Simulated assay, not measured.
Amino acid sequence: MTPVQIRTRPPAHRRSATAVITVTVEIPADDPRLARRLTAALGVLAQSGGRVALAAEGAQQVPAEPAPATAPAALVIDVPGREVTLHGEPVALTRLEFELLAFLARHPGMVHTRPELLHYVWETPDLGLPGRTVDVHVRRLRAKLGEFDTLVSTVRGVGYRFARSTDVEYRPGPVQDRGLTI
């Protein structure tokens, strides 16, 4: 097996926050399990909002294992449609509640401080102003999420985190991370 070759093309436009990464991997023809595992790993990347294109050159493509039938997600966050549904029923969120939920869900497992949330969701700098704006919006958002209120968890003394869950479907829209680097 030859080493993996990686080429990265920087974002065409700074605000798009996307980059194209080309990876070339040579897999021995006598190891179809390795190809299936690599395809499954790329599928995970695609589910988290990335686009994945596979191309096989000079080798027989291994048919992918059929995906198991899954029930529709109980909580759907549709960013392009600006809609949140809970068991198929729309949830009435204000503009800032929706932006807050979408931002947290876009980065599951990542802790965001209150100043970060003020910057990226409210688009205002934290000038050390007293107030509990973020806390109040999180409390209202949790109340509207009902049984999924635990998805938005508090990290004491730090900020908030959105938990990873198989019951949540996040449908990303155009990337607008406003400069957030991970």
Rank of each mutant, 00 (worst) to 15 (best):
Leu42Glu: 04
His137Trp: 12
Ala73Cys: 07
Ser48Ile: 05
Asp31Asn: 15
Val91Phe: 02
Thr113Lys: 08
Arg114Pro: 02
Thr39Val: 13
Val136Thr: 13
Ala53Cys: 04
Pro80Ser: 04
Tyr120Cys: 06
Pro66Asp: 11
Pro125Gly: 12
Arg33Leu: 13
Pro3Phe: 12
Ala56Trp: 13
Pro3Ser: 14
Leu151Phe: 08
Thr24Asn: 08
Leu75Arg: 02
His107Glu: 09
Ala105Ser: 04
Ala55His: 09
Thr181Met: 14
Ala59Leu: 15
Pro108His: 01
Pro32Thr: 13
Pro174Lys: 11
His137Phe: 14
Leu93Trp: 01
Arg33Asn: 08
Ala19Thr: 14
Leu34Asn: 05
Glu97Gly: 15
Leu129Trp: 09
Leu42Asn: 04
Ser48Leu: 09
Ile182Asn: 11
Arg114Gln: 13
Ser153Arg: 15
Glu26His: 11
Arg142Gly: 09
Gln47Met: 11
Ile21Met: 14
Gly131Asp: 13
Ala46His: 08
Leu104Glu: 02
Leu104Lys: 01
Arg14Gly: 06
Leu96Asp: 05
Leu104Gln: 03
Arg51Ala: 13
Arg7Pro: 00
Ala53Met: 05
Thr181Val: 15
Leu151Trp: 03
Ala17Val: 03
Ala59Lys: 08
Arg95Phe: 12
Pro3Lys: 13
Leu117Val: 14
Gly146Tyr: 08
Arg161Ser: 11
Glu169Ile: 02
Pro63Thr: 06
Pro28Asp: 14
Pro174Tyr: 05
Leu117Gln: 04
Ala17Lys: 06
Ala56Thr: 10
Gly88Asn: 03
Asp135Trp: 06
Arg132Ala: 14
Val158His: 13
Met1Ile: 07
Pro174Met: 02
Thr70Asn: 05
Gly173Ile: 00
Arg161Lys: 15
Val4Tyr: 03
Arg171Pro: 00
Glu123Arg: 15
Leu129Lys: 12
Val136Tyr: 08
Thr85Met: 06
Val52Tyr: 06
Val62Ala: 01
Val138Phe: 01
Ala102Thr: 01
Val152Arg: 11
Tyr160Gly: 00
Pro32Val: 07
Thr22Lys: 09
Ala74Glu: 15
Ala105Cys: 01
Gly146Cys: 04
Thr113Gln: 08
Asp149Ile: 03
Gly131Ile: 07
Gly58Gln: 05
Asp177Gly: 02
Pro32Glu: 12
Thr85His: 03
Gly128Val: 11
Leu54Ser: 05
Thr154Asp: 11
Pro68Met: 07
Phe148His: 15
Ile182Val: 14
Glu123Cys: 10
Pro11Ser: 14
Tyr120Val: 07
Thr22Tyr: 06
Arg132Lys: 14
Glu65Tyr: 08
Lys144Gly: 02
Gln5Met: 13
Gly50Thr: 05
Thr124Glu: 11
Ala74Asp: 12
Pro32Lys: 13
His87Asn: 05
Ala17Asn: 14
Ile21Phe: 07
Val91Glu: 00
Leu141Ile: 09
Ala143Gly: 08
Ala64Arg: 12
Glu147Val: 10
Leu54Lys: 09
Pro80Phe: 03
Ala53Thr: 10
Ile27Phe: 10
Ala74Phe: 01
Val23Lys: 03
Leu93Gly: 03
Ser16Gln: 10
Gly50Ala: 15
Ala55Phe: 07
Val44Ser: 08
Glu99Met: 07
Pro172Glu: 00
Tyr160Met: 02
Gly131Leu: 08
Ala55Asn: 10
Ala35Gln: 05
Ala29Leu: 11
Arg82His: 02
Val175Met: 00
Ala69Asp: 07
Val175Pro: 01
His137Pro: 06
Lys144Cys: 02
Ala56Phe: 06
Ser165Lys: 08
Glu26Pro: 04
